[in-house]
Amino acid sequence: QLWTVEEQKKLEQLLIKYPPEEVESRRWQKIADELGNRTAKQVASRVQKYFIKLTKAGIPVPGR
């Protein structure tokens, strides 16, 4: 299922709330739990694509 604008905005906020961890899967699980309707795997996939998009555009990656 496609990500809504609201989900993307919340994801961006949660990336700041939950900074990078030694075991990133824990971070994705915390974010997924707060989103409520996404799995950690879906979050990880979305974040990877989002970070690539930001990097290509020369925009700083949130939480890094």
Rank of each mutant, 00 (worst) to 15 (best):
L2V: 08
L2S: 07
T4N: 06
T4A: 03
V5D: 05
V5I: 09
V5A: 10
Q8D: 14
Q8W: 03
Q8T: 09
Q8Y: 03
Q8V: 10
K9R: 09
K9T: 14
K9D: 11
K9W: 03
K9N: 06
K9Y: 08
K9Q: 13
K9I: 07
K10Q: 09
K10I: 07
K10L: 12
K10C: 05
K10R: 12
K10M: 10
L11V: 03
L11G: 00
L11A: 01
L11Y: 01
L11P: 00
L11E: 00
E12P: 02
E12N: 07
E12F: 04
E12I: 06
Q13D: 11
Q13S: 11
Q13V: 07
Q13R: 14
Q13E: 15
L14W: 00
L14E: 01
L14S: 03
L14G: 01
L14M: 08
L15M: 12
L15D: 01
L15H: 00
L15I: 08
L15R: 00
L15S: 02
L15F: 03
L15Q: 00
I16Q: 11
I16F: 07
I16H: 08
I16W: 10
I16Y: 12
K17A: 08
K17L: 07
K17D: 08
K17S: 05
Y18Q: 00
Y18S: 02
Y18W: 03
Y18I: 05
Y18L: 02
Y18R: 01
Y18C: 02
Y18T: 02
P19W: 04
P19F: 02
P19M: 07
P19Y: 03
P20N: 12
P20K: 11
P20V: 10
P20Q: 10
P20C: 06
E21F: 02
E21D: 11
E22K: 11
E22L: 09
E22Q: 11
E22S: 09
E22R: 08
V23K: 09
V23G: 07
V23I: 08
V23W: 05
V23L: 09
V23D: 13
V23Q: 14
E24Q: 09
S25D: 12
S25Q: 12
S25P: 09
S25H: 10
R26M: 11
R26N: 13
R26G: 12
R26I: 15
R26Y: 09
R27W: 02
R27L: 01
R27Q: 03
R27M: 03
W28E: 02
W28G: 01
W28T: 00
W28K: 02
Q29N: 09
Q29H: 05
K30Q: 04
I31F: 03
I31T: 00
A32K: 01
A32T: 00
D33R: 08
D33L: 07
D33N: 10
E34C: 07
E34M: 06
E34R: 04
E34F: 04
E34T: 04
E34Y: 04
E34A: 09
L35S: 00
L35I: 07
L35C: 03
L35R: 01
L35P: 01
L35W: 01
L35Q: 02
L35M: 11
G36L: 05
G36C: 06
G36Q: 13
G36S: 07
G36R: 07
G36A: 09
N37T: 13
N37K: 09
N37F: 07
N37W: 08
N37M: 07
N37Q: 10
R38E: 02
R38G: 03
R38T: 07
R38D: 00
T39N: 07
T39W: 02
T39H: 02
T39P: 03
T39A: 02
A40M: 09
A40S: 09
A40L: 04
A40H: 03
K41V: 10
K41R: 10
K41F: 06
K41D: 12
K41H: 12
K41G: 12
K41I: 10
Q42K: 01
Q42N: 05
Q42C: 05
Q42A: 10
Q42R: 01
Q42H: 05
V43W: 01
V43F: 01
V43T: 01
V43E: 00
V43P: 01
A44P: 01
A44R: 10
S45Y: 05
R46I: 11
R46A: 15
R46C: 11
R46K: 10
R46E: 12
V47L: 04
V47C: 12
V47T: 06
V47P: 00
V47K: 00
Q48E: 12
Q48F: 06
Q48I: 06
Q48V: 05
K49P: 07
K49M: 05
K49C: 06
K49I: 03
K49H: 08
K49E: 15
Y50N: 14
Y50A: 14
F51M: 14
F51R: 13
F51K: 13
F51E: 15
F51P: 14
I52Y: 15
I52N: 14
I52M: 14
I52S: 15
K53Q: 13
K53L: 04
K53Y: 06
L54T: 15
L54Q: 15
L54P: 15
T55P: 15
T55S: 14
T55E: 15
T55D: 11
T55R: 13
K56Y: 02
K56M: 07
K56C: 04
K56E: 08
A57W: 05
A57M: 12
A57S: 12
A57G: 12
A57N: 13
A57D: 12
A57I: 10
G58V: 07
G58E: 12
G58N: 08
I59F: 13
I59M: 14
I59H: 14
I59T: 13
I59C: 15
I59G: 15
P60E: 11
P60M: 06
P60C: 07
P60F: 05
P60K: 06
V61I: 14
V61C: 15
V61Y: 07
V61R: 11
P62Y: 10
P62V: 10
P62M: 06
P62K: 13
P62C: 11
P62T: 09
P62R: 09
G63S: 09
G63D: 14
R64I: 08
R64N: 13
R64W: 11
R64A: 11
R64V: 12
